[in-house]
Write a protein that binds this DNA or RNA. Structure first.
Lengths: 336, 336
DNA sequence: CTGGAGATCGAAAACGATTTCGACAATGCG
DNA sequence: CGCATTGTCGAAATCGTTTTCGATCTCCAG
């Protein structure tokens, strides 16, 4: 089991083994000058031999050591969290700051556990990544460091939330298809229980209406976020509404499935039917056949923005409210 | 910038604001008994008001607080690291222990930075995830806590490394195909520069040879780890060696591409050509058309094993050497 | 009213570190 | 040789926190 109190190796032990005072040992280990090279070597050797590990102590505050932020994510497969992590790290590359990612599995108990753990380990702020779906109960009151919510809304309007501009993304996709003179645009997307799916579907209908068009098939096709649903829905769609000449899909997996189904049906992409995906999950979208035009969420920028807000809050100028991260259309062969 | 020394809020301030002694404040905040409910509430309110954050101190060692391990990964997209993380967390779910994931981008400087950061934050051990490709320079000497290497070998044979049993995985796949009476088995895989690709290719040839068979096409087809390469290689293969009745692919993306190309060529899967993938990347393999039989790396078990070794080392019984994690064949429709 | 028993709290010691400052020796320089 | 400078080191002060232990208060049975 855990080391008992007596096992803990303290600076005193190191100093004794090296034959120096505690003060000198401290200086040697912390790379301060005022200590001869030979002495330093002796101390370091003793520390290594004893597997000495400093007991943190004031380090965090007194000596202004390396700082860190915690990134808590509900999302299991890392598809969204990882790019956000990369963006956050990029934004911190000039600072001497680290990002620690923890997986909460959408479990409040686990999340609180990690928050305690990370606070005890002196993180200077949190980025909390939701599933873009339901609202997060505000944790800010319980956390003595700045918090930024990403891909979720907080129950407290004074919190800072960064969300994706779903309406804007749908607008980009649909207007792109309209610019290609497509008249019969369908929408296949994820479960209606997802807010993102609902918002994009509503925006899609609204944009079409603004251009005097109707959604092909009459209404959005809600299903799973999977290739399988993409294939299935596309077959249904083409059977009932064969005049469809474009499909806007709720994510790249659905889009990939749609492309496969169209190939099976002998429809050419993009000549007969154009396809637009969503998320720009590179490994999927760029490697599909044909490569997919898709809406990029700018996740790295989201990570960078979150960090910038966190740093601003640490400097005493916190922001609040809901910020929408604009999306970006990546054009590939599926509409080219 | 960072809070200056004078800004730091100490327990003394909290105690003063709450009108109690430092000792009582400490007890209240640490949920010890010996303190009346009303007093505790007053202290907590004061602490919240001042955004008090304890200065760690002895906490980590003295009071046996929550412990943590660091998981450092080179791998960008989280496909391997995340399941390992989940497995590690599962193994720790009974302990009060946390897993902190950091992204090193295969960069030694960044890795060292994170090691320092995490050591200063009192992690009790490290899991270092490589890219399964080249050897890792041993870090164990510089780290005063146990280290387990996963998916890489260390330069120091005394280190503990957990690697995937690539030969065993290839054996599972090929023998499965042979049991289905396939006689013309081809192998499409990733770049020859990847050790995993080379090892599996060699094992594939060896197993075929043991059964008196030859690799269809004469030699393994090395290319990228992409659907695109899977499609391209399959077209080449079927053009030059039309008698192929099974393809063992180096990962699920290649396998998915192969399935697409076979569909385009009018070959039925699995009736005409069976396909086996590798990695069991669920979102890809299970959602492909048809769903892919594939080799599962048991990544969660790897994570659990790594944690168990770490806990054993913390208890004073470290292991060393190279352990091979056996793989598992997941049978789906592409060979059913 | 008396005398415990138990709850509550604070003074002071302990703890594991860092930092200040004075002691001391070696060195340089005239 | 005398004297100042410089480099090294340790005793002691300091820091923020936890823990021990004795003092005080409340409550209630006798």
């Amino acid at each position: 089991m855990g080391r008992r109190r007596s096992d803990a190796i303290t600076l005193r032990d190191v100093a004794r083994l090296a034959g120096v005072s505690i003060a000198t040992a401290s200086k040697a280990i912390n790379n301060r000058d005022e200590v001869a090279a030979a002495t330093r070597a002796r101390v370091l050797r003793a520390a290594a031999e004893l597997s000495f590990r400093p007991n943190v102590l004031a380090q965090g505050l007194v000596a202004g050591r390396t700082r860190a932020i915690g990134l808590l994510t509900d999302e299991l497969d890392g598809r969204f969290a990882i790019p956000i992590l990369l963006g956050a790290e990029n934004a911190l590359s000039h600072q001497e700051m680290s990002v620690l990612l923890c997986d909460t599995r959408g479990d409040a108990i686990r999340r609180n556990h990690y928050i305690r753990t990370l606070l005890a380990r002196q993180v200077d702020g949190f980025i909390i990544v939701g599933d873009s779906n339901d609202v997060h109960l505000s944790l800010t009151a319980d956390i003595p460091v700045p918090v930024v919510y990403v891909y979720c809304r907080s129950t407290n309007p004074a919190d800072l939330c960064l969300v994706s501009d779903d309406e804007g993304g749908a607008l980009l996709a649909v207007e792109h298809l309209i610019a290609l003179r497509r008249k019969h645009i369908a929408h296949i997307t994820g479960p209606q229980s997802w807010r993102a799916a609902r918002d994009r579907a509503a925006a899609t209908c609204a944009v079409l209406h603004d251009h005097g068009l109707m959604l092909a098939g009459g209404q959005p096709l809600h299903g799973e976020w999977s290739q399988h649903w993409g294939r299935h829905a596309t077959r249904l769609l083409m059977a009932t509404t064969p005049e469809v000449d474009a499909i806007f899909c709720g994510n790249d997996q659905i889009a990939s499935g749609a492309a496969q189904a169209l190939a099976d049906l002998g429809r050419r992409v993009p000549d007969d039917v154009a396809i637009v995906g969503y998320d720009n999950w590179e490994i999927f979208a760029a490697d599909s056949k044909p490569p997919l035009t898709t809406v990029d969420l700018n996740l790295q920028q989201v990570g960078e923005t979150a960090v910038r807000h966190l740093l601003a809050a640490l400097d005493g100028t916190p922001a609040s409210g809901v910020f929408r991260q604009p999306c970006r259309l990546v054009i590939r062969e599926s509409t080219a």
